[in-house]
Amino acid sequence: MQFTSTPRGARLARRLASHRLDDWGHPYTSTTNETLTLITAELAANAVRHGHVPGRDFRLRLLRTSTALRVEVTDTRTERRPTTAPTHTPPSPGDESGRGLFLVSQLADRFGCEPRTGGAPGKTVWAELDVPSSPRRPTSPTTHPDPISRISKMI
């Protein structure tokens, strides 16, 4: 789905991801839903802040397989590619930005960046989260700790 490259668009993308995960059997309060929703929020916010081209939208794509959930955020800015090295280091306490991809690197099982498909300008930043093969309702324990407690340990 396409969203306007605005804070409102990023917020709507985050909400869509949470709703879709709930539809797929990962309830709103599950760790899987909370973690992937936070990852989506960070990637969408980066698309708005760093990938914005006036008059161009960003695109959110959610995919699921039997073993993983994947979120992809595509924007039209080619020259601003994020660093996705596995050794992504935390920002210094005085830094005003740079925490978003660090959080994604800590919460996702895998993430990366690739050129936009079809020859169009831009890039796709993606993240994957491994999940149990069959989610259950109303809650489903996962191997991922609570994202809020993971973040608080990083700070």
Score class of each variant (00 low, 15 high):
residue 64 R to S: 12
residue 58 F to D: 09
residue 119 G to W: 11
residue 152 S to H: 09
residue 94 G to S: 14
residue 94 G to K: 05
residue 13 A to P: 10
residue 70 R to A: 14
residue 71 V to G: 10
residue 34 E to D: 08
residue 85 A to L: 08
residue 69 L to S: 04
residue 147 P to G: 07
residue 113 C to I: 05
residue 7 P to R: 01
residue 132 P to R: 13
residue 79 E to V: 00
residue 18 S to A: 15
residue 43 L to E: 02
residue 110 R to T: 14
residue 141 P to F: 08
residue 91 P to W: 10
residue 152 S to N: 05
residue 7 P to M: 04
residue 82 P to D: 02
residue 103 L to A: 14
residue 45 A to R: 11
residue 43 L to N: 01
residue 14 R to H: 08
residue 78 T to L: 10
residue 122 G to N: 10
residue 117 T to K: 14
residue 142 T to M: 03
residue 125 V to K: 05
residue 82 P to A: 05
residue 102 F to E: 04
residue 48 V to Q: 07
residue 77 R to F: 08
residue 99 R to N: 07
residue 134 S to W: 06
residue 14 R to Q: 11
residue 72 E to K: 01
residue 56 R to M: 11
residue 30 S to Y: 13
residue 151 I to V: 15
residue 37 T to Y: 09
residue 33 N to T: 07
residue 129 L to A: 10
residue 74 T to V: 02
residue 3 F to C: 00
residue 70 R to C: 12
residue 144 H to I: 07
residue 105 S to N: 14
residue 106 Q to F: 05
residue 68 A to I: 01
residue 150 R to N: 02
residue 43 L to A: 05
residue 81 R to D: 01
residue 137 R to I: 12
residue 147 P to K: 08
residue 39 I to G: 07
residue 111 F to S: 06
residue 129 L to C: 08
residue 13 A to E: 10
residue 88 H to V: 00
residue 12 L to C: 05
residue 88 H to W: 09
residue 62 L to P: 14
residue 45 A to G: 10
residue 86 P to V: 10
residue 72 E to N: 12
residue 36 L to M: 15
residue 7 P to D: 04
residue 130 D to P: 00
residue 98 G to C: 04
residue 69 L to G: 05
residue 142 T to Y: 09
residue 12 L to K: 07
residue 99 R to F: 15
residue 145 P to V: 02
residue 36 L to A: 11
residue 90 P to I: 01
residue 111 F to A: 03
residue 26 H to V: 01
residue 110 R to C: 03
residue 151 I to W: 13
residue 155 I to K: 07
residue 120 A to N: 03
residue 119 G to R: 02
residue 67 T to G: 08
residue 155 I to H: 07
residue 144 H to L: 03
residue 103 L to V: 14
